[in-house]
C-alpha cells in the first residue's frame, strides 16, 4: 500500500495534536488544519490523501467542505468525526458519500481501521481515474469494438455486426491493445467493469 497523506481538519487544537501524534506513531504523514476554509485554500489535487474532518465546525461544516471538494473533482475518501452520536447527521453524512462516521472519543483501533480502509478506497479511486483516462483516449469506434470484445464476441462476429471487414476490426483491436497497454481480453473486462461500477462506500 502506498503511504498516502492524512488531512486532519478539526477546530480544537489539542484534539488535532493528539490525533496527529497517534497517527505519526504509525508513521503516517499528517497535515492538520484548524478550519475547512484553510484546508480548501491549501489542498493540492496532486497530493491525494484521506480526509479526517470534524462534522461540526464554525462557518463551514464538515459536510459542506466535502461537497465543495467534490465540486472541484476531489473525491478522496472522507471520514467524519463528531462529538455527538447523532443518527440523523450520520444518515446525512452517508447520503453525501462519506466513507465512515466516527464518534469522539475515537478508539485507536477504530481510527486505524477506518484510515486503512480509506487508503484502500483511495487507491481504487486513483486506479479508476487512471483507467478512465485510458478509456478516454479510445475513439468512439474503438470503444464500440472493445465493448463487443468484452462481451466475448469473435472478430468475425464484430465485423458482421459493424458491417466492416475483419481486417479493420483487427486493426482496431491492435490500437486498443496499444492504448490500454494490454492485449488480454481478461484485462479488458477488468478495466471496463472497474469503470462502470465505482467501489465507493463502506468497506467492511
Amino acid at each position: 500500500m502506498k503511504p498516502f497523506q492524512v488531512y486532519l481538519i478539526d477546530d480544537d487544537e489539542p484534539v488535532r495534536e493528539a490525533i496527529k501524534l497517534l497517527l505519526r506513531t504509525y508513521g503516517m504523514a499528517v497535515e492538520t488544519f484548524a478550519d475547512p476554509a484553510t484546508f480548501l485554500a491549501h489542498v493540492d489535487p496532486k497530493r491525494p490523501g484521506c480526509i479526517l474532518a470534524d462534522l461540526r465546525m464554525p462557518l463551514i461544516s464538515g459536510l459542506q467542505m466535502h461537497e465543495r471538494l467534490l465540486e472541484r473533482g476531489i473525491g478522496w475518501p472522507t471520514i467524519m468525526i463528531t462529538g455527538h452520536g447523532d443518527v440523523n447527521a450520520c444518515r446525512r453524512a452517508f447520503k453525501a458519500g462519506i466513507l465512515d462516521f466516527l464518534t469522539k472519543p475515537i478508539d485507536e483501533q477504530v481510527l486505524m481501521d477506518a484510515i486503512h480502509s480509506a487508503f484502500r478506497t483511495l487507491e481504487r479511486v486513483l486506479e479508476k481515474e487512471e483507467t478512465r483516462e485510458l478509456l478516454r483516449s479510445l475513439t468512439e469506434r474503438e470503444r464500440e469494438v472493445l465493448d463487443m470484445v468484452c462481451r466475448g464476441w469473435a472478430t468475425k462476429e464484430i465485423a458482421v455486426a459493424l458491417n466492416v471487414s475483419a481486417r479493420t476490426i483487427d486493426a482496431h483491436r491492435a490500437n486498443i491493445a496499444d492504448k490500454l497497454g494490454t492485449s488480454s481480453v481478461a484485462d479488458f473486462v477488468q478495466l471496463t467493469s472497474a469503470n462502470s461500477e465505482l467501489p465507493i462506500g463502506r468497506n467492511t
Binding site: 480544537d12 489539542p14 484534539v15 493528539a18 497517534l22 468525526i81 455527538h84 478508539d107 485507536e108 481510527l111
Partner: peptide, 10 residues
C-alpha cells in the same frame, strides 16, 4: 468530548 478525544488518542 474534545478533551476526552485528545486524552484517548494521546
Amino acid at each position: 468530548t474534545q478533551p476526552l478525544t485528545a486524552l484517548l488518542s494521546q
